[in-house]
C-alpha cells in the first residue's frame, strides 16, 4: 500500500458517499445516470468475486464489501425508492455499445484465460468506460448540480491517483499490470474535459455549465 493508492481509494469512497448523500438528502436522483450505476455495480461484482476465496487484508475485504453494497444500494434508490425522480429522457446512452466491445476485449486480451481472470479483465475494461453514460447525460442536460460535480471529480480523481500508485509500484516494487494501467489511463483521460470545467467553474463557485 502507498499513499497514492490510499488517497485513491479514499477519493473513491468519498465519491460514493457524496452520491448516496445527494440522493438521500435531496430524495432525488435527478442528473444521475442510472445506466452508469448499473455498469459500476457490474464492475464491482465481476471484480470482487475473489472476496471470499482470496483474503488480502481486512482493509481490502471491507472496501470490496462497501463498493459492492453501495453500488447495489444506489441502484435500489434510483430504480425503486426514488424511481419517480429518475431522468429517463436524458439517460439514454446505449450501454450495449460498451458491454459488447469490453466483453470481446476481455476475452481476447487478458493475463490468463480462466473465468476469474477474464471476469477481472472485463471489469477493468468496463470500469474505464462506465462513466460515459453519466458524462453523456451531463452533456445532454447541459449542466450538473454542484454536488454531482463533486461526485464526478472524486470519482475521476481516484483512478488518476491510481496512475501515480502504478508509477510508484513500478519504480519501488518492480510491479506493473499493463491491463490495469492502460485502462486506468483511458478512464482518467475520459474525465479530462470534465476536470477542466470543474476546476475553471465549480471551484470558483459557478455552476457546472457545459458550453451549449
Amino acid at each position: 500500500m502507498n499513499v497514492f493508492r490510499l488517497a485513491g481509494d479514499l477519493s473513491h469512497l468519498l465519491a460514493i458517499i457524496i452520491l448516496l448523500l445527494k440522493i438521500w438528502k435531496t430524495r432525488s436522483c435527478a442528473g444521475i445516470s442510472g445506466r452508469s450505476q448499473i455498469l459500476f455495480a457490474l464492475v464491482y461484482t465481476t471484480r470482487y468475486l475473489d472476496l471470499f476465496t482470496n483474503f488480502i487484508s481486512l482493509y481490502n475485504s471491507v472496501m470490496k464489501v462497501f463498493f459492492i453494497s453501495t453500488s447495489c444500494a444506489t441502484i435500489y434508490l434510483m430504480y425503486v425508492k426514488f424511481k419517480a425522480t429518475y431522468d429517463h429522457n436524458h439517460d439514454t446512452f446505449r450501454i450495449g455499445f460498451l458491454l459488447i466491445p469490453v466483453t470481446i476485449l476481455g476475452l481476447l486480451i487478458n493475463h490468463d484465460f480462466t473465468p476469474l481472470e477474464v471476469l477481472w479483465t472485463f471489469s477493468i475494461y468496463l470500469e474505464s468506460v462506465a462513466i460515459l453514460p453519466q458524462l453523456f447525460m451531463v452533456s445532454k442536460t447541459g449542466d450538473a448540480e454542484t454536488i454531482t460535480s463533486h461526485y464526478l471529480f472524486c470519482l475521476g480523481l481516484y483512478r488518476a491517483l491510481y496512475i501515480f500508485n502504478w508509477i510508484y509500484r513500478y519504480y519501488f516494487e518492480g510491479f506493473y499490470d499493463l491491463i490495469a494501467i492502460v485502462a486506468g489511463v483511458v478512464q482518467t483521460v475520459l474525465y479530462c474535459d470534465f476536470f477542466y470545467l470543474y476546476v475553471t467553474r465549480v471551484i470558483k463557485g459557478k455552476a457546472l455549465k457545459l458550453p451549449a
Partner: peptide, 10 residues
Amino acid sequence: NEKKLKKDEL
C-alpha cells in the same frame, strides 16, 4: 505466463 499477478488492488 508471467508470475501470477497478486490481485491486491481494489
